[in-house]
Nucleic acid binder design. Structure first.
Length: 877
RNA sequence: GCGGGCGUGGCGGAACCGGUAGACGCGCCGGACUCAAAAUCCGGUUCUGGUGACAGAGUGUCGGUUCGACUCCGACCGCCCGCACCA
């Protein structure tokens, strides 16, 4: 009598093996069905997957399996973002080689991913550290170089003087190198840049077309690109022995405030500042001080405005007699605009702070809409809004917008040194992308430096430029640079002795085109096949973490454009049509009285009657404190190992849990109770399907017309749930889809429970057959192993993974009678059960006749009755 | 500082275009089965009052629009995220 418990540990591997053997998830490029490309951001092969991966990849897998069932030819590939520093760090620590470490990690993570039961086409697997991949990346680099999309220029970097390496901003902690602890220096190095700024306007404008992206991400990208419209203004420098320069150009977005100018300020590394410093030791010292302070966030935060008067004076463009001093100021950035600004203290807080510190005063020239022009003054808070011009000569009385226009027009028409004094200019915050890294474990930049010929591209036939295997770690500096022979090669042009570029590429380059490579991953001769790219791309649904909202997604969008310009992607404009950013997996924290963090696996949590919870060590029983819920991290030990969960409960339980509870874009709290709930539900579904199988008609039995009430109700519940699950999966609202499956299971259990005699009528048997099959196929994208086992129990010898999505019949869901809630003055008082077709007159009469309505009216006359068809009745008294 | 988002039972969350607030799950309470426990099944569970039918209150706070507001508008409070000397 008792059904055997569903044994996930035994069942799941069996089905995975069958999927594998039958090639169920291999995708053919030539397939004639409509395509659907679903992609999750590929992982870094750190060695172990974590729950965040499980959540991310499960979501993608639900979509892939669902779309497959709906008749799409689905591309769902997986690969490895395999270059990067951790491999080099590991190499230093265990005296291993980055390649060995990385490929071993890939092998174990591949097994872990397979244990989740993801419907991936593993035949398309790629690893970015594979020469077969980075060979093509080098080709792309060379094509970009030929197309003028690559630049080589000097640029400031964070330099770690102990490790002899460049540090990314996030590797600088409190001004020190994260590994060496040495104080980081600002150094100028010659670096390779990809000219992303070429596409700044296009990358910004095209955001509007991405209507299946979260608004938040589009906004973050727009802010990052940071377009501003302004004016370049050249100021005439009064002749001085300090410099030969005759003019100084500034950038401003507020030419309307020109009459409020009190000074000009230039960046410490502005050429004019350097020039003046040669004859002014005080200035040289000030500049050195600014550079030492660096650009770290806290330096900026606490930074007071400091400046140094160069002694130079410039002429105000609207008044030949008016002189303005030129300061070198620590708050002016060299790499935005021209590295020089005019200071208008009344209408810019930075300028005001500076002016107040140096006693420069201020002139208000914009009067706020609600202020009196006669008395408006600025002391501590600058007014940076718009308003009406005052104290501004010919601009007086104009609005800010008019004044901007008028000032720009005048400056364009006046000229100094035969050039217009002002020029309109659109500026972007977005800088070119520096891709040089002084590291070993990355894609070599395929260039050879020759004394005679300069930087020479490696001929395409010589690609890939492979990383040498015999390298040493543990010493400071770049192993490639240190290698005795690798960098010495003849110049491809003149044949003379030359040196290879020893910088490798930023790993963000690797992930900027992998989605395109997946469409034809074994193409030996080219990075992509245009036909395959045009067929598969854009990615229909891309899923990943919000932490990549800016850089990765912007770089990939840039690459798409650069690849289009070099003929690699056909007419593709945007790489990702739909984007979804999922939340994290979080867990509460446990800490012993001694202050040690404890893994959830080492803690037993008890819930007392009434709901109070306390936690105890498994070894020793000591009580530990329960801390706040935080992102799973190794440092706080609040992690749960997917392998252990899968071993204990099975993959379907883990998949079900990460989909349930929270909306997918929000964080999900991992709890032991929740996981157990999911595990129980797996068992419950198995029992329910088993019971239904015993009561149901044989497979293939059609559902007859004119079912008795009980069977009709079952069908109604089934099709109602099916429609909702469809909508929920389409809209990625997995938590609601989960709730629908629960709800249907509850209803079907009740229907089975209501059967009294062992003789079930034919209508009910047919309805149960349909119910069981729909139920199984409905949860199959979410719990694929259980679905296969149930499908077999229902008498099928085919795979559920290959079964088409059941067709929902909307007509079945339509009710003959409707239940209308009746309100009196907006408060619900009763329900009204009526024929579907009842007209408003009949509804009104029936509503007013209700006893509860009359009682609530308390004798007041009815003013009107509002009837919203199929929705509600409101009696207004 | 600038930009964006979010505040709903004990908890995670539902609620379509302004139309029955609290679907579904977790927890808790009660019951059945059992010698007992686990597992399973059934019932209850926003708060207050009432044995009860029922009544009143209720979606961060205050106000507005509306026949009707979790939903729209305004102000405020709290939390979260991103950017941050970008002229």
């Amino acid at each position: 009598m008792d059904v055997e418990r569903y044994n996930a540990r035994e069942v799941e591997p069996r089905w995975r093996e069958l999927w594998d053997r039958s090639g169920t998830f291999l995708t053919q490029n030539g397939d004639s069905r409509p395509k659907y490309y679903v992609l999750e951001m590929f992982p870094y092969p750190s060695g172990r997957i974590h729950m965040g991966h499980v959540r991310n990849y499960t979501m993608g897998d639900v979509i892939a399996r669902y779309k497959r069932a709906r008749g799409f030819n689905v591309l769902h590939p997986m690969g490895w973002d395999a270059f990067g520093m951790p491999a080099e760090n590991a190499a230093m620590q265990n005296n291993s080689h980055p390649a060995g470490w990385t490929y071993a990690n890939i092998a174990s993570m591949r097994e872990q991913l397979k244990a989740i039961g993801l419907s991936l086409d593993w035949s398309r697997e790629i690893a970015t550290c594979d020469p077969g991949y980075y060979k093509h990346q080098q080709k792309l680099f060379l094509d970009f170089l030929a197309a003028g999309l690559v630049d080589r220029k000097r640029s400031k970097v964070n330099w770690d003087p102990v490790d002899h390496t460049v540090l990314a901003n996030e590797q600088v902690i409190d001004g020190r190198g994260w590994r060496s602890g040495a104080i980081v220096e600002q150094r100028e190095l010659t670096q390779w840049f990809l000219k992303i700024s070429t596409f700044a306007e296009e990358l910004l404008a095209s955001l509007d077309t991405l209507d299946r992206w979260p608004e938040k991400v589009r906004l973050m990208q727009a802010n990052w690109i940071g377009r501003s419209e302004g004016l370049l203004i050249r100021f005439e420098i009064l002749p001085t022995p300090r410099t030969a320069a005759t003019e100084l150009e500034v950038y401003t977005t507020r030419p309307d405030t020109l009459f409020g100018a009190k000074f000009l300020a230039i960046a410490p590394d502005h050429p004019l500042a350097q020039d003046c410093a040669e004859s002014d030791p005080g200035l040289a010292a000030f500049i050195a001080e600014c550079q030492q302070r660096g650009t770290s966030a806290e330096a900026v935060e606490t930074g007071e405005k400091k400046g140094y008067d160069t002694g130079l004076r410039v002429r105000h463009p609207f008044d030949v007699e008016w002189r303005l001093p030129v300061y070198v100021a620590n708050f002016v950035l060299m790499d935005y605009g021209t590295g020089a600004v005019f200071g208008c203290p009344a209408h810019d807080q930075r300028d005001l702070d500076f002016a107040n510190a140096y006693g420069l005063g201020n002139i208000p020239v914009i009067c706020p809409p609600d202020a009196d022009p006669a008395t408006f003054k600025v002391t501590e808070i600058a007014y940076d809004g718009e308003g009406t011009l005052i104290n501004s000569g010919f601009l007086d009385g104009l609005s800010s917008a008019q004044a901007k226009e008028e000032a720009a027009r005048r400056l364009e028409e006046s000229s100094i040194g035969n050039h217009p004094q002002g020029r309109r200019k659109v500026n972007y915050r977005l800088r070119d992308w520096g891709v040089s890294r002084q590291r070993y474990w990355g894609c070599p930049i395929p260039v050879i430096h020759c004394e005679a010929c300069g930087a020479v591209p490696v001929p395409a036939a010589d690609l890939p430029v492979e990383l040498p295997k015999d390298v040493t770690f543990g010493e400071p500096g770049n192993p490639l640079d240190r290698h005795p022979t690798w960098k010495h090669v003849p110049c491809p042009t003149c044949g003379g002795p030359a040196l290879r570029e020893t910088d490798t590429m930023d790993t963000f380059v690797d992930s900027s085109w992998y989605f395109a490579r997946f469409t034809d991953p074994r193409n030996e001769t080219a990075p992509t096949s245009v036909a395959a790219v045009e067929h598969w791309l854009p990615v229909d649904q891309y899923i990943g973490g919000i932490e990549h909202a800016i850089l990765h997604l912007l770089y990939a969008r840039f690459f798409t454009r650069a690849m289009q310009a070099t003929g690699h992607v056909g007419a593709l404009k945007e790489p990702f049509d739909g984007l979804f950013t999922q939340g994290m997996v979080v867990h509460e924290t446990y800490r012993s009285p001694a202050g040690d963090w404890l893994y959830p696996a080492d803690v037993r949590v008890e819930t007392q009657a009434g709901g109070a919870r306390s936690a105890f060590r498994l070894d020793g029983g000591e009580e530990v404190s329960i801390g706040p819920i935080e992102k799973m991290s190794k440092s706080k030990r609040n992690t749960v190992d997917p392998d252990e969960i899968i071993l204990a409960y099975g993959a379907d339980t883990a998949r079900w849990f990460v989909l349930s509870d929270s909306p997918p874009e929000r964080d999900v709290i991992w709890t032991e109770e929740g996981v157990q709930g999911s595990a129980k539900f797996v068992q419950r579904l198995w029992r329910l399907v088993d019971e239904l199988a015993g009561l149901a008609a044989p497979p293939g039995t059609p559902v007859p017309q004119g079912l008795p009430e009980g069977a009709a109700a079952v069908r109604k519940a089934v099709h109602g749930a099916l429609i909702k699950v469809e909508e929920d999966i389409e809209r990625l609202r997995f938590n609601r889809a989960v709730a629908q499956v629960h709800d249907l299971a509850n209803k079907l259990s009740a229907a089975v429970g209501a059967i009294e005699s062992p003789e079930v009528d034919a209508g009910m048997r047919a309805a149960f057959r349909e119910a069981a099959e729909v139920l199984v196929l409905m949860f199959a994208p979410m719990m694929p192993h259980l679905a296969e086992e149930c499908w077999a129990r229902l008498g099928h010898s085919t795979l559920a993974a290959n079964a088409p999505w059941p067709a929902a019949d909307r007509a079945i869901v339509v009710e003959d009678t409707i239940t209308l809630p009746v309100q009196v003055n907006g408060k619900k008082r009763a329900d009204l059960v009526l024929d579907r077709g009842a007209d408003t007159l009949a509804i009104e009469a029936a509503a007013l006749a209700l006893e509860q309505v009359q009682r609530a009216l308390e004798g007041r006359p009815v003013k009107k009755v509002i009837i919203v068809p199929q929705r509600i009745v409101n009696v207004v008294a």
